[in-house]
């Protein structure tokens, strides 16, 4: 009798467990009568702090807006690998693709393909992108480029030699900022002298460090470095610290605040400028959902939490330049 009870218990446990197991995934499988939109965000390179922060915005948007939004991208900042990923997403038939391009030109054909399949295409950090429905910018890139030079001048003075780091020569935005900044400097700060072509080391700290050491020797009168790409200014600051030159050469540029905090604190880096990458992730997904719902983008569109946007052709712009200095770097949360 006792033995029977024992087996009855075991069997009922198993039955209940298997029922539970069978039930558990069911609500998820049945609920979406209308399946949530699938929105893929393709970044330049996965697994670097910058895009990890972007991803938090993507995840936040997915949760708040009830869409299936996720982030992906190549392991190296490789234009061809990125195109391949976008091609796969088009073949898979997602609803919208948001891309932070490595190479604006390389993506044009696959954007065309996406459009033919009725997929919404949004880009970010690529203001002159051809083939996108909308390019979404958290900042006015002309103002941003100029602002970098204003920061530089604030610390090195309005005359002297300086150099520019970019992440790569095909990264659209870095080179756009460099172009506008150089043009702006020619007009406003005619005594600034760019010593050499922009150097592609902004995404490699060790290389940026080494290049800075070389620049110091090649151009002994160097007074400033503007770095675009989150590791360029850090590598430069590190080299200056090693050489005890933090007072002679001013470093400004785009950085992750938490990583730059020690360099800003000891003065080897003077100031940084940026926007909040999480906002970029959120904004792209929000915009994709907004368009998928059949809404039209108009001038003055209010994006929740990000403010009012201006519309210029296919360019949607917010104005959210963030100055990073030793006071706020550690407390910004990314």
């Amino acid at each position: 009798m006792k033995k029977q009870m024992f087996w009855a218990r075991i069997i009922s446990l198993i039955v209940v467990l298997s029922l539970l197991a069978a039930c558990a995934p069911k609500p998820a499988a049945e609920a979406p009568a209308a399946e949530p939109y699938e929105i893929a965000v393709v970044v330049k390179i996965t697994g670097i702090p910058w895009f990890n922060v972007v991803e938090t915005g993507v995840v936040k948007a997915a949760k708040e807006l009830g869409v299936n939004a996720y982030q992906t991208g190549p392991a190296q900042a490789d234009p061809a690998a990125q195109v391949k990923i976008v091609e796969d997403l088009v073949a898979k038939g997602v609803d919208a693709i948001a891309v932070v391009p490595n190479d604006a030109k390389a993506l044009e054909p696959v954007f065309q393909k996406a459009k033919e399949k009725g997929i919404i295409v949004i880009t970010h950090e690529s203001p002159d992108q051809v083939g996108t429905d909308y390019d979404f910018e958290l900042i006015d890139n002309v103002k941003f480029g100029q602002h970098a030079w204003d920061q530089l001048v604030k610390y090195m003075g309005d005359s002297g030699e300086y150099a520019i780091f970019v992440g790569g020569l095909t990264v659209p935005l870095h080179n756009f900022w460099a172009d506008t900044g150089i043009a702006y400097a020619q007009e406003k700060y005619p005594n600034l002298k760019l010593v050499t072509e922009r150097i592609p080391c902004g995404e490699d700290q060790e290389l940026a460090r080494q290049k800075t050491l070389e620049l110091i020797k090649a151009y002994p009168n160097l007074k400033g470095i503007v770095g675009f790409g989150s590791l360029g200014p850090i590598g430069a600051a590190q080299a200056l610290k090693e050489k005890g030159l933090t007072d002679q050469i001013a470093v400004v540029g785009t950085v992750i605040p938490s990583q730059a905090a020690p360099y800003l604190a000891d003065g080897s880096m003077k100031e940084g400028l940026l926007w909040n990458p999480a906002d970029a992730g959120f904004g792209m997904v929000w915009l994709a959902k907004y368009l998928l719902d059949g809404n039209k983008v108009v001038d003055g569109l209010e994006i929740p939490g990000l403010g009012k946007a201006t519309l210029d052709g296919t360019l949607i712009k917010l104005d959210a330049i963030l100055d990073i200095n030793k006071e706020n770097a550690a407390s910004l949360g990314f």
Binding site: T196, E197, P200, E214, A218
Partner: peptide
Amino acid sequence: TLMHVPAL
């Protein structure tokens, strides 16, 4: 770099 040749 020291010969002032662009990094490219």
